[in-house]
Design a protein around this nucleic acid. Sequence first.
DNA 1: CGTATTTTTGACTATTTTCAAGGGATGTGG
DNA 2: CCACATCCCTTGAAAATAGTCAAAAATACG
Lengths: 226, 226
Amino acid sequence: MQATAIRPQHSTPAIIFKRSAAPASRSGAIGLTQHFAKGDELFAEGDEADFFYKVVSGSIRSYKLLSDGRRQIDAFHLPGDIFGLEADSDHRFTAEAVEATTVIAFRRSRLVELTASDPAFGEQVMTSMMRSLERAQDHMLLLGRKTAQEKLASFLLEMADRLSQEDGHVVLPMQRADIADHLGLTIETVSRTLTQLARDHLIGLRSGSRDVDLCDIKGLRHLQGC
Amino acid sequence: MQATAIRPQHSTPAIIFKRSAAPASRSGAIGLTQHFAKGDELFAEGDEADFFYKVVSGSIRSYKLLSDGRRQIDAFHLPGDIFGLEADSDHRFTAEAVEATTVIAFRRSRLVELTASDPAFGEQVMTSMMRSLERAQDHMLLLGRKTAQEKLASFLLEMADRLSQEDGHVVLPMQRADIADHLGLTIETVSRTLTQLARDHLIGLRSGSRDVDLCDIKGLRHLQGC
DNA sequence: CGTATTTTTGACTATTTTCAAGGGATGTGG
DNA sequence: CCACATCCCTTGAAAATAGTCAAAAATACG
């Protein structure tokens, strides 16, 4: 098996190249279910990446900081998403719970074993990683070339899609500061832009301001830019 | 916030097909060596992703467009890099030669076969993909949170590092418009910022303006932000 | 309820973009 | 090898989008 030829700290290749291997029919050693309260840190940038995670419920933000504290949230991880699987031995992001969140933690050293016993799991990991990459790529376009309006329109549509709540309605789990640091804006600009979108009847802001009606999805799509 | 306009390119690239007798790795991996002239398109967003590529010499830019022509170059692919391997059946980017470039094209359908016969090649593919992801993640921080100065400082240091030419000196293969669309700036801002860096004695601009001396690497590192 | 946190709004500032024009380099054909 | 054309880069001035600073309003929380 080619997996043996791969450096131990780079266990991920096994996913691609072994995912259709015959199941080893081992059960038992699955992941560890963990609960986190709002704001709890799962791991920090530079920590040993011994575990990777799958979101069961809630949401996770993962981010990097500049030396002076500016923050870039690269992704929000929502139920079903897998995150924290790194190429190297260390985590390259900090991960925190946006709200009360339940995850399953998997030991990275067991990845090969897990995927062997459950090819579907391996497939899931791979798919999730590919989705992460695609989202990262789309997000570069957003960060580099979209206006504040376009950023917010894209963000709301993506969240509505991924959280797949009642059609045309999203309850955002994160606060304005998180949205701002994800979209490369300030909280003031996020707030002002949302107010403007509401004034233009593209969205409706309900009580608590996390509750958003996407009144005019077609209009929002048009605003996205792509 | 206007990206440089892209003119559609319909000229069939002058590709010289040639079996690569000497594979890049010490493997039996066979690919097709192809040559592209400056500006030639390897594939477009939406094309079937039948092949993926490894850069032998030269450089490739891969980008996405917004509907009004704004462009975001997500990455420059330099000698040794592997690119164009997609999760789905279609390419999600357009790839063009920045300069005269030689690549080896591999049929995606033969990836499994190739890696089976040559584990080292599989590892190479995987490592290159992971590097791409890491660069994408770092680039999100740059696009979302860095100033023009910090963007240019980071860019020059990265290029100097990856092109690994004579220490403290880079010959950039791409023009200002490419740099601008990679960093989420305009060509004017790129030009002005480079001029300013030169005035501050952090860099020196030689003839042709693609030739950059990194006079003060420590200063540039400090300017990076992270 | 009262306090802390988050969000909104306002006035002002600034970095970056836009618009415009000039200068330099590069390449082609005569 | 020169002349011309094109593309690329630089620079300036004005405009605009988004950021900063400040404070009030709304919401969440104990």
